[in-house]
Design a protein around this nucleic acid. Structure first.
Lengths: 228, 228
DNA sequence: TTAAAATGATAGTAATACTACTAAAAAAAA
DNA sequence: TTTTTTTTAGTAGTATTACTATCATTTTAA
């Protein structure tokens, strides 16, 4: 049985739904590869439109501006990560195992649960690592938040926070810890690629990894104090 | 005795040293207030030059582009934070106290050790919180790193890592933990201001703060295992 | 006092970030 | 089937951005 992943996107993200047309899907697909190639700062709708044989105006009909396009792909990514998490923790009862799975999935985009033909998850992972923070580090974060544009990110964070609460209902910072796990997984990966002295991960060292760093960080912190 | 803080800046950051002239200092001072006001994306050298009664070309004589100006102020900030840390841990022998001080200083820009008249540290703290990551989240991070433009950040991180190693030489991730402390302090503050559901900090709750969150996170993680 | 350096004023260019208008094609209604 | 409506593509244009170049004037340093 073939199954393809369909993620319902917030309608405020776009002017015209890119899923609904060939041009729209080409905008997403090539938007991802172009951001990955030249970086978000250097991306323009002109370059993107040249790449997919349409005009600048053609792209503007789908997205108000390039920040909305970034938000679209970043939101898709967080929704995809949440889907992966649900999928892989479906049969789990232990909150510890669920948290471990979250750390693993966030630190490593390897195994694809389910793919869409026009979205490359591996590239997307690298984009979110390098550009993801720019989706909310703006002066219009409050307005975007009001439009629920960060909901996928918050949903993922809250799901992880729920497992933390389940593991130890006494722990005082489940939400902060969850958002720290997500942020740290991506930033430490970026650092290890680009500013490695900020990390302790060595290529090929299977012991010292982001996963083991985060697991230690998280589980010692939320461990229940022995009674008495 | 009057003392003023003088931080030696990397000469690759600028074309002409802004410390050396009135115009240069006005560029830094008003650059900071303008970034704080309208955000880094909306900043242009035209707007900045209008604000300080010079011309666009006048600003371009000091900085190659606005990213270099951002790097300048962000580097200044990290150098200032490291100076504060050295100052406040000068008389300390306990690594635990030093780490606690680092967390405190990074989570809260309150007490000024020493100020420069043309740099507003409070605004700078908010800028680094909201724009700091953009200093390294670029396609030219490798080139900038080669020019040592991230040295102040790395120095601060390494200083904290050194205290972590001193506290527990067995701990495997001192550098990652140090950079996580720095990043998390700023991001959690940004979240609590803008996307509060990602955190657990309530206004006026003196118990649940970024400091206590980070202290718990760090010290449980690096605690020495009981021997035996 | 003279030379060098810094500043100011003006102008110019290619690229960016859009908007508006028109033409063509596809879908729906008659 | 033909006509009408709607959707989509393409062209053109504008204000702003991100610079660079030139030259006169002022300030500073030798």
């Amino acid at each position: 049985m073939e199954h393809s992943l369909k993620i319902k996107m917030n309608r405020k993200l776009f002017l015209r739904n890119p899923e609904d047309s060939d041009l729209g899907r080409r905008i997403i697909k090539n938007g991802i590869t172009l951001i990955h190639e030249i970086g978000f700062e250097a991306l323009t709708f002109k370059k993107l439109s040249n790449k997919i044989n349409t005009t600048e105006a053609g792209v503007y009909r789908y997205f108000e501006n390039k920040h909305r396009l970034l938000l679209y792909v970043v939101d898709w990514y967080w929704s995809w990560q949440e889907y992966r998490l649900v999928f892989h923790t479906n049969n789990m009862t232990s909150p510890k195992e669920k948290i471990k799975m979250a750390i693993k999935l966030l630190s490593d985009p390897e195994d694809e649960v389910c793919s869409t033909d026009y979205i490359n998850e591996k590239l997307l992972y690298e984009i979110v690592m390098a550009e993801g923070a720019k989706s909310f580090l703006t002066k219009h974060v409050a307005a975007d938040n009001k439009d629920k544009l960060f909901k996928p990110y918050k949903d993922l964070s809250q799901r992880i926070a729920a497992s933390i609460k389940e593991y130890n209902p006494e722990y005082a910072y489940p939400n902060s810890l969850a958002s720290t796990i997500i942020g740290t997984a991506h930033f430490q990966k970026f650092y290890s690629n680009n500013l490695p002295s900020l990390t302790d991960f060595a290529e090929g060292n299977k012991e010292k990894t982001i996963v083991s760093f985060l697991e230690k960080l998280v589980f010692t912190s939320i461990e229940k104090k022995p009674v008495g």
